[in-house]
């Protein structure tokens, strides 16, 4: 893992990657999305990816706005369809690094089908699932990752349903790199994102993040700092062993890494067999 001082400074990130005329962002004070963006940019920088080789594709929701603040080519797509658009971009030009930040609703509800099929294909994309366990932009409704009993605008007496475990879902669907980070640890997060982007195949990094306004307020944690304390408390690093799973904690770190045939490479082989691209 890179030491903090080896990661790009904020000054460097601003000079290289941020559209300054868009900042400050639309996100609420203390929203975790900005921290994820910072770690993502530091991962891209540490990997020394060329700016013109990186494409950022987003969907709809608070996370959908990520693309708007960055100096990369990209696409701000439709709700849940970021991975479908990213698949098209990657298939057309496999040389590109296609990074797809999504929210939990965007990825696991509206785009659930695209998510499992991108994983099944093992196409070389990096999905970043920013999981704040709520639909923030539309008013704090329960999402597929809302934990049971938490209060939301659609579940004022506590959420009834069981949540998806995004990492387990990705595993079941066939993703070949899976990790979980948390916004309270941006150094680990940058490292996981770097590993995910370097991986050949479909990579997923779930990031537990805070929405102080829509989720925190109803949980009695409206201060961003209280949300971060809470996230620290409900997570445990995989390096410390996984005994805490039974206590209902989220394991952070690298959860799965395996080699499997990657879709665009297999497609190229098929095209060669069929006589080349016309």
């Amino acid at each position: 893992m890179a030491k903090p001082a080896e990661l790009a400074s904020t000054k460097e990130l601003i000079e290289k990657y941020i559209r300054r005329n868009g900042v400050p962002s639309i996100w609420c004070p203390g929203c975790g999305i900005g921290t994820v963006v910072g770690s993502m940019l530091r991962a891209i920088d540490h990997l020394r990816l060329r700016q013109e080789d990186v494409v950022i594709v987003t969907g709809i929701g608070c996370s959908g706005l990520i693309y708007n603040y960055l100096r990369f080519d990209g696409f701000h797509g439709t709700h849940g369809r970021a991975l479908a658009i990213a698949t098209g971009i990657k298939a057309a030009n496999p040389r590109l690094h296609v990074v797809v930040p999504m929210g939990d609703g965007d990825c696991a509800a509206i785009g659930g089908n695209h998510f499992i099929h991108a994983a099944r294909r093992n196409i070389d994309l990096t999905a970043i699932v920013i999981n704040n366990q709520i639909y923030g932009m539309t008013g704090g409704q329960s999402s597929p990752t809302t934990v049971q009993q938490s209060r939301t605008s659609t579940a004022p007496r506590g959420h009834l349903e069981r949540p998806f475990d995004v990492c387990e879902l990705a595993k079941g669907a066939g993703a070949t790199y899976i990790a979980r980070g948390v916004t309270s640890n941006p150094i680990q997060l940058a490292d996981l994102l770097e590993r995910a982007m370097a991986h050949k195949g479909f990579s997923v990094v779930e990031v537990l993040s805070q929405c102080p306004v829509q989720a925190g307020r109803r949980a009695g944690r409206s201060e961003p700092w209280e949300m971060l304390q809470w996230l620290k408390g409900v997570t445990v690093s995989a390096k410390r062993g996984t005994d805490d799973v039974s206590l209902g904690k989220f394991i952070t770190g690298e959860l799965l890494k395996e080699d499997a045939p990657e879709w665009t490479e297999e497609y190229d082989k098929l095209i060669a067999i069929a006589g080349g691209r016309s």
Binding site: P4, A5, L7, S9, T10, K11, L13, I14, I18, V23, P24, S25, W27, G30, C31, G32, I33, G34, T35, V37, G38, S39, R42, T183, S184, P186, I187, A190
Partner: peptide, 20 residues
């Protein structure tokens, strides 16, 4: 101590710690 945590976690790229 230049641990840089504030700089790395700031969601708004607003705090910058001088490097050595």
């Amino acid at each position: 101590t230049r641990c840089l945590l504030c700089e790395l976690i700031c969601p708004d790229f607003a705090i910058r710690v001088g490097r050595e």
